[in-house]
């Protein structure tokens, strides 16, 4: 890799780590979301360096474009009152937990780096990417020929995610039309179902989505 390549890699990597730290350390949720955005942009940059242009574009569109925006919507929707409750665990527990986790991670990394001669770290044994590697064209060809089976099977994953989201979010029973907010839902557990409507077909109401 050229010196320019190293500089680019370290630039992206530094921003990625800074973004990750900001995501977990920020007290303000908006700043946390912005840290996540920085992380996602830096990783897209790393993908570009790996000849994975399509992946980089998808990373920007899906994560930066959709997911971070969704996070921001939710944060705005909940408003400033929805701050995280203060952590009631003791300082020692928290520091010890973080330390243990960091030690295990760094230990594994040190083991990995120390175990092998430098030249074998990284994908040295693999063929270098050819001309159109990572392009939309090459990606599409592989996805719809070699990768057809996992591509088709992932439709089951998307389907179960949609149905699951609908099952969790929808389907108020006719018997408790008032229970909409979270607090009302919590109360509904203790209150006997007032005025039980005669059982309709499946107890399913057709409400506007």
């Amino acid at each position: 890799m050229s010196a320019m390549g190293y500089a680019y890699f370290y630039l992206c990597a530094t921003f990625a780590i800074l973004g990750a730290i900001a995501t977990v350390a920020a007290k303000n949720p908006i700043r946390g979301a912005m840290g996540l955005l920085l992380l996602i942009l830096s990783i897209a940059g790393l993908f570009l360096a790996l000849h994975a242009q399509f992946l980089a574009a998808i990373q920007l569109i899906v994560y930066a474009g959709a997911i971070v925006v969704l996070f921001l919507f939710v944060i705005m929707l909940l408003g400033p009152s929805a701050s995280t409750p203060s952590d009631h665990r003791g300082r020692i527990t928290r520091v010890a937990g973080a330390g243990l986790f960091a030690a295990a991670g760094l230990g594994a990394m040190a083991l990995l780096v120390g175990s092998a001669p430098k030249s074998t770290i990284g994908p040295t044994g693999y063929p270098s990417p050819t001309g159109d590697f990572g392009s939309v064209d090459a990606f599409g060809r592989i996805l719809f020929s070699q990768g057809l089976v996992p591509f088709e099977l992932s439709s089951a994953l998307l389907m179960v995610a949609i149905v699951g989201a609908v099952a969790v979010a929808r389907g108020r029973h006719k018997s408790d039309p008032g229970a909409i907010s979270g607090a009302a839902t919590l109360e509904a557990e203790n209150v006997p179902h007032a005025g039980q409507a005669p059982r309709t077909a499946g107890g399913i109401t057709r409400e506007a989505p």
Partner: peptide, 23 residues
């Protein structure tokens, strides 16, 4: 991984199916 996620997402949603219960 695909299968595991498909199986688990279904199980998560089934667990949350009793919508009125905090438990």
């Amino acid at each position: 991984f695909l299968g595991l996620e498909t199986m688990s997402l279904g199980a998560y949603a089934l667990t949350a199916f009793r919508r009125t219960s905090p438990r």
